[in-house]
């Protein structure tokens, strides 16, 4: 296990390095630099050059990359071109905001969707299952922002029960109750979208397992149905569900750009779009890097969870399920 982890870690570092190299190249290859949005057209070319020089943008791209990676190794993510704000000052609070929203809806989706899917697998095509089907269709078919706007119209503007947007009311910054209050609408949107995927996965995964010979054997032996479902079936059905959840993990820090935008949630999805437009190279690089780390980590966690639910899984050995 330890040996496996070390090997995975080394692999990950290589992957991250390659990602950073490719991203850096791609970002700089995009036409138009950060100064295109900053230099006023009335500025003389000489003055514009001074500004480029002051910002270090007149250096070659390999040289800029070298500076970036050197700083990174000392823990310095760089500063924005726009106003010299340290990238961390923008990134970490934003990531925290996104994490609050995403983790909340993620956990909520799991709590609702997985048991529901399992229940539906025991009574396929029953009323509950049909309802789940219907909800899934809506969740899949309706764009998140559209559903968000509808919720805003009903619950905020018409009924005036819930806040329209933002994380906190202007005069209640940092208040936890106020945060929960503001979480209701955006969470509903995200949960509905997740509900479809999670409940369908758990249902079909369970159905597949329930048709296995060992389930029939268990039932034939007279094992109570409850025990068949939870002891024998569920554990085996969890592997595909873990895969889906593991793949969703990066969303916790990447955020949901459209939902964040509609609810004016100060999160990562929005930050990324803004920064891409402004060609804020250092922020974009930091976001890419963090995302890459989380993706790699998400895979690793999923692998370890496989092992926990299914002792037959051999991590890192031939024939094992390591990615």
């Amino acid at each position: 296990m330890t040996e496996y982890l070390i090997r995975r870690l080394l692999q990950s570092i290589l992957v991250l390095f390659l990602i950073s190299l490719v991203t850096f190249g791609l970002i700089h290859a995009a036409p138009g630099g950060p100064t295109q949005m900053m230099i006023s057209p009335g500025m003389s070319p000489a003055a514009a050059k001074v500004q480029m020089h002051n910002l270090g943008l007149d250096k070659s791209i390999p040289e800029q990359y070298w500076i970036w990676i050197k700083n990174l190794l000392t823990g310095d993510l760089g500063k924005t071109f726009k106003n010299n704000t340290p990238v961390g000052d923008i990134l970490w609070p934003t990531m925290k905001n996104t994490f609050v929203l995403m983790a909340f809806s993620w956990v909520l989706s799991m709590i609702i969707a997985i048991p529901w899917g399992i229940y539906n697998s025991t009574k396929p095509y029953g009323i509950s299952d049909q309802t789940a089907n219907f909800v899934s269709y809506i969740g899949f078919a309706m764009p998140a922002f559209w559903f968000g706007i509808i919720l805003q119209q009903i619950f905020s503007l018409q009924l005036n029960w819930l806040p329209l947007s933002d994380m906190y009311a202007m005069d209640k910054q940092g208040n936890f109750i106020d945060l929960l209050y503001h979480l209701i609408l955006p969470c509903s949107v995200l949960v509905l979208a997740n509900l479809a995927a999670y409940s369908k996965y758990s249902r079909s995964s369970m159905l597949e397992v329930l048709e296995q010979d060992y389930i029939r054997t268990a039932r034939a032996k007279g094992v109570p149905e409850r025990k068949v479902i939870f002891r024998h079936a569920l554990r085996n059905a969890l592997i595909p569900i873990i895969t889906v959840l593991g793949m969703e993990l990066p969303a916790l820090v990447v955020g949901a750009a459209l939902t964040e935008s509609v609810f004016n949630w100060p999160g990562m999805g929005r930050l990324f779009v803004d920064m891409a437009r402004a060609r804020e190279y250092s922020v974009l690089m930091a976001i890419t890097l963090v995302t890459a780390v989380v993706v790699v980590l998400g895979n690793l966690i999923a692998d370890i969870l496989y092992k926990l639910v299914d002792p037959r899984v051999q991590l890192g050995r031939k024939g094992g399920k390591s990615a």
Binding site: Q152, S156, L157, N160, L164, S165, S261, F263, N264, R270
Partner: peptide, 13 residues
């Protein structure tokens, strides 16, 4: 505001 629709709704509200 990140979204103009939200901004306008906030004004209405």
């Amino acid at each position: 505001y990140a979204d103009q629709n939200t901004e306008v709704q906030a004004l209405i509200k």
